[in-house]
Nucleic acid binder design. Structure first.
Lengths: 194, 194
DNA sequence: CCATAAGTCTACAAGCCGGTAAAATGCAAG
DNA sequence: CTTGCATTTTACCGGCTTGTAGACTTATGG
């Protein structure tokens, strides 16, 4: 067990599941659909995964780890808060861009996690959001940012970022780092000409 | 038929369905769940609606009409493009605030529409988005807005607005009109102090 | 007081759901 | 050439799915 073949087959199952979960949603994707897409019988899936929800868990918590780590270096840097926010945004975009499908599942399907996994997931998410909120609060205190409602600001920020997996075309001309910079421009500086 | 009672009972069914669709998703909500929430048997639902999907259709296309109409007066006004955008944003927010539950279903569950309804729905949506895109393009031409990627701008805009039903608390202190103005501030002027 | 209609019920159809058990298959190392 | 393991298959379980048929209840207005 734990051979390369086994792991890769399990990974294949999870990846195909992610595609179907993204396209039709977790609840509307049956294990028979998944098996069919892989060219095997539904029962065969259970040699690789314990349950349908285990797939969702590995997708959601796998992405949560990547998001958490991406922000680690940024907070302690000795740079203006607007630059911290910019780096946080770019990191967030790059994590999503590395796996757009898993990101979309992470964003849209996590509510189908059962307890206690749902609770744990939501705690990880609120923690991550609060780290961004602190950066914005710092920027307001330092006078870099206007005195805006921080809850509203952080909700606007994450709304804009997290919808990206639903429209970004990775085969297009713009790369993830540029996209992150442009999104940061728009959110930090706004649409208006100064 | 068409008595007040009949209409109101049908409306009750649709409203309760909207609540469940928002909370658990369309696919994860069974007609038994819905019947149970109403205190009746599942079969009784079919005296009021033709099918589960008919409920989703009425919710999605009902909201689509409201969004379309909310923008009608704005485009022909003789005001700066930034003001047109602001009024468009406030109108969009107010339509959502009038029915947060139906709005959430509209945003998150429309993909479960079957053809040809899904196609029609997506056409309505892209049309609505393009009307905002034209306002932004006008603002760039007039020099009011920076020379930003319009697709990116309009996606950022709608991401920020459309996530609102998922976090806005209507019993809180901020009213929909103020919320629309604050969102417009943030999107048009950005976070940064000038 | 009865006709009408709305609303609900029981019973059921036909099929899909996630998941299990145990046998069969294919393959690679000893 | 056989042992052992990964993988898949067939057959199945109990329960849930949307939706239908037809009978029953309840209320209202003439």
């Amino acid at each position: 067990m734990l051979s390369v073949e086994h792991l890769s087959r399990k990974e294949q199952v999870i990846r195909k599941a992610a595609e179907l979960f993204r396209e039709h949603g977790y609840a509307a994707t049956s294990m028979r659909d998944l098996a069919n897409a892989l060219g095997i019988e539904a029962a065969s899936l259970y040699s690789h995964i314990k349950s349908k929800e285990e797939i969702l868990q590995s997708l959601c918590f796998g992405m949560a780890d990547l998001f958490r780590d991406s922000l680690n270096g940024v907070e302690i840097m000795d740079i203006p808060y607007s630059e911290k926010l910019r780096k946080g945004i770019i990191g967030h975009i790059q994590v999503m861009a590395k796996d757009l499908i898993a990101s979309a599942v992470f964003m849209n399907e996590h509510r189908h996690l059962s307890q206690p996994y749902l609770r744990d997931f939501l705690l990880l998410r609120i923690n991550y959001i609060n780290r961004f909120k602190k950066i914005i609060e710092g920027g307001i205190r330092s006078g870099e940012f206007r005195e805006i409602d921080t809850k509203l600001a952080v909700m606007t920020l994450f709304s804009s970022l997290n919808w990206m997996p639903n429209w970004y075309d990775p085969s297009g001309i713009i790369n993830p780092s540029d996209l992150g910079n442009q999104l940061a421009d728009m959110l930090i500086d706004g649409l208006k000409n100064k």
